[in-house]
Structure formats: C-alpha cells, structure tokens
C-alpha cells in the first residue's frame, strides 16, 4: 500500500469552505479522478484519508495537509495534477510526496499566519503588537463546544511583526505571526482578541486571515519549515522506488 501526502489550499471565496465541506468535495474528487483508494474495513468502507489540523472556516490557507492510502501505486506528481483538475478552483492541490516517515500530523508543529487588518494604521498595529509581545501571558476567551474557555494566547506566539500595504487614506496593517500548535490551539482570532485585550486594537472590518505555511518549527530561527522535507530526504537516501517524490515542491512556490 502506498501513502501519499498532499498539500492543498483554500483560496478566495472558497475559504468559506468548512472542513466537513472540504472532506466531501475531496472524496468526490477522488472518485472523479479515479484514484485507486484503499478502503477501511467494516460494514460501510470509507476511503482512507487522514486530514491534519484544518484551518478554521472563513480562513484562507496556502498550506493544508492530508494523507491518502492507495491500493495501487501512483506517481505523486500525476496524481496531484489529476486531483487538482477534479477540485473546484480555489481548492488546489499544490504539492505531493510519497510518505516515507511516520506520524505526519506530529510534523506540523507550527503555522505561519498572515492577518490583513483593513483600516488599521500600521503604527497602531505596531504599538499593539509590542504590548502583546511584552506581556508574560495574555488571557483570552473563546466560545467552544464545551462552553466559554479562558486560556493564554501569548505563550504559543513565537513571533509577530507588522508590515503595511497601501498608503493612507486606506491604511492596512499586515501582521505575520508564527504560532506553535499547542493544546488548546491558539488561532489567529485568539491573537486578535489578545491584541484587543492588551492594546485596545479593534479592526473596523474582519481580518482577512491566511495560513501561509505549516510544518516543523526551527527553534533556532523561529521559522516554519517544509513538512515534506523528511519524506524527500528519505526518498533520496532510500531505494529508487521513490518515483515522483521529487515532484513535491517547496512550500510557497508550488502551484502559484
């Protein structure tokens, strides 16, 4: 049985796709593309797909990941192209690699997020970010299925900086933040709640949030690295059956 890991996007208006919606769309795309899926055992067999760490509904992403199990071998690059054609524009498959390492979900240790705050002056955002980062802990609240939860939003944030886009009179601050995947998960909107709590930063319109990358955190540089790198390294080191593994592209460059 061959396992293939895929990186996909949620772009533009399809960022409003919920994870459940995506699962249905993806499983239909598997049928349309006639992918030879391995099925689970049991009374109602399901195609074997493992989803990792989905971005919240309404959040765009350039770096979502999943793994599928096939009953016949396929070239990852060809499979990626077939599946991408079978999915609606905006849900795009942008990289593929044959799995050669275990526990993929654990590779995804952190995310790089971009938050566009329309109508927020970059200087105001910088002040707020400085206050947030200076704090030891920033308590925020979020409504969850189990009720209102209170937790720290500061600890998970590895870094956060502020850029800008567009001159006055249309200010737009752009935050880039690296967030460690902890439990409970700290999401971009939790960080925004934290900025409101520490510095009264209140964007006039909802932030446009995009996950730019997801993968192992390099503790020295504080950057998010490519989660497919170990699979590619293993393929280069291992036997030559790794056909097509090279097809996987580095995050941020593929399929753009």
């Amino acid at each position: 049985m061959q396992r293939i890991r895929l990186r996909y996007t949620k772009r533009g208006r399809l960022r409003f796709t919920s994870h459940r919606d995506f699962q249905r769309a993806f499983e239909r795309a598997l049928r349309r593309a006639a992918v030879p899926m391995a099925y689970s055992a049991g009374f109602t067999p399901h195609p074997r797909v493992s989803y990792a760490n989905a971005a919240p509904t309404g959040t765009a992403s350039e770096a979502e990941y999943l793994e599928i199990a096939l009953s016949e071998r396929r070239d990852p690059a060809a499979l990626m192209a077939d599946l991408d054609t079978s999915l609606p524009d905006g849900l795009d498959i942008v990289a593929a690699v044959e799995a050669r390492t275990p526990d993929f979900a654990e590779q995804l240790g952190a995310s790089l997020w971009e938050l566009r705050l329309d109508g927020v002056a970059p200087a105001d955002a910088r002040a707020a970010v400085a206050a947030f980062l200076a704090a030891e802990a920033v308590e925020v609240q979020r409504e969850t299925k189990k009720g209102l939860r209170t937790f720290d939003a500061r600890g998970a944030v590895v870094s956060m900086d502020v850029g800008s886009d567009g001159p006055d009179p249309h200010p737009c601050a752009i935050l880039r933040l690296v967030v460690r995947h902890l439990t409970p998960a700290v999401r971009p909107d939790d960080v925004l709640s934290g900025l409101r709590a520490t510095a009264d930063l209140a964007p006039p319109v909802p932030a446009a949030v995009t996950r730019l990358a997801q993968g192992p955190l390099d503790e020295e540089t504080g950057t998010v690295t490519d989660p497919f790198a170990p699979d590619r390294d293993a393929a280069l080191a291992g036997p030559s059956t790794a056909a097509g593994a090279q097809a996987a592209a580095a995050p941020g460059t593929a399929g753009q």
């Binding site: 399809l14 409003f16 309404g58």
Partner: peptide, 19 residues
Amino acid sequence: LEALLPHVQKPIQYVGGEL
C-alpha cells in the same frame, strides 16, 4: 457581500463556485 460572510451561519452556501 464578503465582508458580511464572517458573521453568518454556513457562509459557503453564498459563495458559489460549485463544480
């Protein structure tokens, strides 16, 4: 419309783009 969608239930139903 997009600016309103984060505030409503099941926004995906309003965005189109169906196969």
